[in-house]
Amino acid sequence: MSFQITLTLNGTAREIALDDTRVTLLDLLRERLEMPGTKKGCDRGQCGACTVLVDGRRINSCLTLAATLDGAEVTTIEGLARGDALHPVQQAFIDNDGLQCGYCTPGQIMSAVGLIAEGTAGDDPERIREGMSGNICRCAAYHGITLAVRQAARQMDNDPKGDAA
């Protein structure tokens, strides 16, 4: 079954022709649009490595059929920085050593951007950990991740424009 969808991908409108209804957003990004920043971990919605924003909300791209997304706005890790200026969440992960091997990091960062936009984590480490529980880190960098999300949330709270996605 062939069909076409329109996406706004990291701010750019894209017309995408698909020949298979089974393609997930994750596989569309990685295998067909040459955007491998979004990672495939479990491919079953359990690890969070594939997290992206759809219409500003964090979701698991591995469980999202591309066919359902006609007209959607998708933001991936490739769409966060402004030129050489990192997004506050990206910078906070570096500042707080919020990673080791780095494989889960794009998903962690996109999830953190989504969580901060949801506005429910606040400054409380317990709420941040709960809000980030959909992202597994095999290296167990959780302490640094929690500190990074708190730093970014504080910074973006003070500078809500801040070019945040």
């Binding site: 969070g48 698991n60 999830s111 949801e118 959909g134």
Partner: peptide, 9 residues
């Protein structure tokens, strides 16, 4: 239930 990502979907 689930995670922030799953609850959004």
């Amino acid at each position: 239930g689930a995670s922030g990502q799953l609850r959004n979907a």
